[in-house]
Design a protein around this nucleic acid. Structure first.
Lengths: 176, 176
DNA sequence: GACAATCGTTCTACTTTGTAATCATTATCG
DNA sequence: CGATAATGATTACAAAGTAGAACGATTGTC
């Protein structure tokens, strides 16, 4: 029952940019739900990965890379430390700084995280052939390069309701 | 060698799913900044588009499709009404309901929005040939279909700090 | 003609977030 | 060498966003 003229409908809704935004949000949401079973949020997973790749950095540095103010990083690291996933050591050269490291438990969790990531990738690309996946990855990487995005840095990855049982109110009911 | 063994590096970082999340957030961010010059946020733009496509709906319906509680929709609509972009008419058949419509100014704004959307699309796909754009759109649409996403419904589109035009006064005019 | 249900609105408690103040340690410079 | 500025981690606090319940107005039902 469209009552208005949609002759001037902007092509944005079917365009690449809109699809990217929609799918990106969906993929991030799916991933968040998946790792919620490990009691991890996306930024927490991000920190674990960062510590695996470059251990011993200070809280301020890590907070900066995660895009959060240092004051917020403190309770953020507190929780992971309390769960035994990360460890606060003192930097011998500058005792003001902490040197954050993964614990053995943290490394195990990282393994679970890798498994979740692979399953996630598998699920998202399920409807594509291997050749299409590769082609898609190449096109996306081209855009990412063109837009000046650094490969390893995850996006905004904003917080998300982590209710493991997850309630999802998003019910777009189109009732004509 | 301050880095650790990355022998077990999860392929997720270079995979399609991660690129999608990263690029999607980036594209949404770019779009938000662009329409910030029109003093519009993504959900505001979404409402204008919804009203253009299906005018006369009630606030509760619109709030539901936008994924926000009705209580939050009230000041949200207040601002757009105060700026003369939308109009609250009464539904003659059921005077409890409002019937929201675009004003003439709102339609003009929608035109600006369409221009911004096309420029946005152009910018994002600048590094691709027309054939590649079409192919990319097809692959993305395939994934979207497979994931059960509805075409016209925008994603989470969470609020964003723009800083471009820090409009915050938001003087809601009580309209009895 | 009373009673339940629905819509828009207001109210309020709760969570999240960022900035400023505080303490310890280090660098700088006279 | 000693005082002062600067930096990292932490705490305190205020500002803003959010969701849910409560309220008046209107409609449908029996």
């Amino acid at each position: 029952m469209s009552t208005n003229d949609d002759g001037a409908r902007p092509p944005a809704l079917g365009g690449v940019a809109f699809l990217l935004a929609q799918l990106g949000a969906h993929a991030a949401d799916r991933f968040a739900r998946r790792i919620a079973e490990l009691d991890l949020t996306p930024p927490q997973a991000g920190l674990l990965r960062m510590l695996a790749h470059a251990p011993g950095r200070s809280q301020r540095e890590l907070a900066g890379d995660l895009g959060m103010p240092p004051s917020r990083f403190v309770p953020f690291a507190d929780e992971l430390e309390g769960r035994g996933l990360i460890e606060r050591r003192r930097n011998a050269e500058d005792r003001r700084l902490y040197a954050l490291h993964l614990t053995e438990q943290g490394r195990e969790m990282l393994g679970e995280l890798a498994k979740a990531g692979m399953a996630h990738e598998q699920q998202i690309t399920e409807s594509l052939t291997p050749e299409e996946r590769q082609h898609l990855a190449e096109l996306l990487r081209r855009i990412a390069d063109h837009e000046g995005l650094t490969p390893g840095v995850h996006p905004g990855y904003r917080r998300l309701r982590t209710g493991a049982s997850g309630r999802r109110p998003a019910s777009p009911s189109r009732a004509p």
